[in-house]
Amino acid sequence: MTTTPIDLFASALRFHPDGGVRAAERQMKGSDPDGAWQVATFHVETDADVHADHWEMHPEADEAVCCLTGGVRLAFRPTSPGGSEDVVRLAAGTAVVVPRGRWHRLELDAPSDLMSITLRHGTLLEKR
């Protein structure tokens, strides 16, 4: 087996149930028949880079959202009509776990490097 570095800003790491780990193209949503978890790293400059105008939800797993550099705000959609968004601020070196099935979105405080870890299967996006 040849071991070579993987550019985490160009590829995702896919952790498969059989214990295998492979580099692959990043998926924002879709299905993975193998049930692989994705670790994806992104450099983002603007709110458009984090689809701030969309809510996202992962029905099959929690998601760890990690702020490696910069700063972001992670907003949770209100759980009842007329409710307000819950917002968590992430500074460099911090993370939050988004519960499975919880609608959420990101907004930037500064250009940032982010890492997302989740099972992408069934991920939904909805215009805000």
Rank of each mutant, 00 (worst) to 15 (best):
G101W: 00
T79K: 06
A95E: 04
A92R: 04
P78S: 00
S80M: 10
S84D: 15
S80F: 05
T69Y: 02
P99S: 09
R77G: 06
L68G: 13
L68Y: 09
V96T: 15
G71A: 12
V65I: 11
R89M: 12
V96R: 08
T94S: 15
V96D: 01
G70S: 05
A75E: 03
G71Y: 05
G93E: 09
P81V: 13
T94C: 13
A75H: 11
C66P: 00
L90T: 05
C66V: 15
E85F: 02
T69M: 05
L68E: 12
C67S: 09
P78Y: 03
V88L: 13
V72Y: 01
R100M: 09
R102T: 14
A92G: 15
T94W: 05
R100C: 10
R102G: 00
G71P: 08
S84L: 12
A95D: 01
V65L: 14
P81G: 07
T79N: 03
P78D: 03
R73Y: 07
C67P: 12
P81L: 02
R73H: 09
V98I: 13
R89V: 15
V96S: 11
L74V: 10
W103L: 03
P78R: 02
T79H: 06
R77K: 15
L74Q: 04
V72K: 00
P99A: 11
S80Q: 14
S84M: 12
R73Q: 12
L74H: 03
G83R: 07
P99M: 04
R73V: 11
V72P: 04
V98Q: 06
V97S: 06
T94M: 10
C66A: 10
V98A: 10
T79P: 00
E85N: 09
H104G: 09
T79E: 02
V97E: 04
E85A: 09
G83F: 07
D86C: 08
P78W: 05
V97P: 09
R102E: 08
V87K: 07
L90H: 01
